[in-house]
Simulated scan of single mutants.
Amino acid sequence: MSTLSHINAQGEANMVDVSEKAITVREARAQAIVSMSPQTVALISTGGHHKGDVFAVARIAGIQAAKKCSDLIPLCHPLMLSKVQVDFELQQSLNQVVITSRCRLSGQTGVEMEALTAASVAALTLFDMCKAVDPAMVISDIKVLEKQGGKTGHWQAPKQD
Rank of each mutant, 00 (worst) to 15 (best):
L4D: 09
H6E: 11
I7K: 06
N8D: 13
Q10M: 09
G11N: 02
E12P: 03
A13S: 12
M15A: 08
M15Q: 14
D17Q: 01
V18I: 14
E20F: 02
E20G: 08
K21E: 13
T24Q: 00
T24A: 03
R29T: 13
I33G: 10
I33K: 13
V34M: 06
T40A: 15
V41C: 13
I44L: 01
I44F: 03
G48H: 07
G48L: 10
H49P: 05
K51S: 07
D53N: 15
D53E: 10
A56V: 02
A58G: 07
A58Q: 05
A65M: 04
A65G: 04
C69F: 13
C69D: 15
S70D: 09
L72F: 11
L72A: 07
P74M: 11
H77M: 00
P78C: 05
S82G: 03
V86D: 12
Q91L: 10
S93C: 06
L94M: 15
N95D: 09
S101Y: 01
S101Q: 01
C103R: 01
C103F: 00
R104Y: 14
L105F: 11
E112P: 03
M113R: 03
E114Q: 02
A115S: 11
A119N: 01
A119K: 01
A119T: 02
S120I: 02
V121N: 00
V121R: 00
L124K: 00
F127G: 07
M129L: 14
M129R: 09
M129N: 06
K131F: 10
P135V: 11
V138G: 09
I139V: 03
D141M: 07
D141A: 13
K147N: 04
K147W: 06
Q148I: 07
Q148M: 05
G150N: 05
G153Y: 12
G153Q: 10
G153A: 13
Q156K: 07
P158Y: 12
K159P: 10
D161R: 14
D161G: 11
